[in-house]
């Protein structure tokens, strides 16, 4: 049985990994916007770029996040 993972900010995952979104530490409006873009709790997300900027894939969409925004989105590493 794998140990329970503690959610970490998206910026702590390297490019190429798949993560499960856990929760947002953002304002209501900002969180709502992310959800509308498909970045929502429980979703499987593919981290495409994580250097000075952050890009992830949600299904076939590519979502770019300001680093400060990505730092406030928490996720766990996916086994997929």
């Amino acid at each position: 049985m794998s140990p329970i993972q503690v959610p970490r900010p998206l910026t702590s995952f390297s490019a190429g990994v798949m993560v499960h979104l856990a929760f947002f530490s953002l304002g209501v409006a900002e969180s709502q916007r992310l959800r509308e873009l498909g970045v929502r709790e429980g979703n499987l997300i593919h981290v495409l770029k994580n250097d000075d900027t952050f890009v992830c894939a949600v299904e076939s969409s590519r979502i770019a996040l300001r680093k400060e925004v990505a730092m406030n989105v928490f996720a766990t590493l996916s086994a997929v």
Binding site: L26, E30, R33, R62, I63, R66, E68, V69
Partner: peptide
């Protein structure tokens, strides 16, 4: 106004 940037990159 908080700093927020999240946008879709279309294909």
């Amino acid at each position: 106004e908080s700093s927020f940037f999240a946008m879709e990159l279309p294909p």
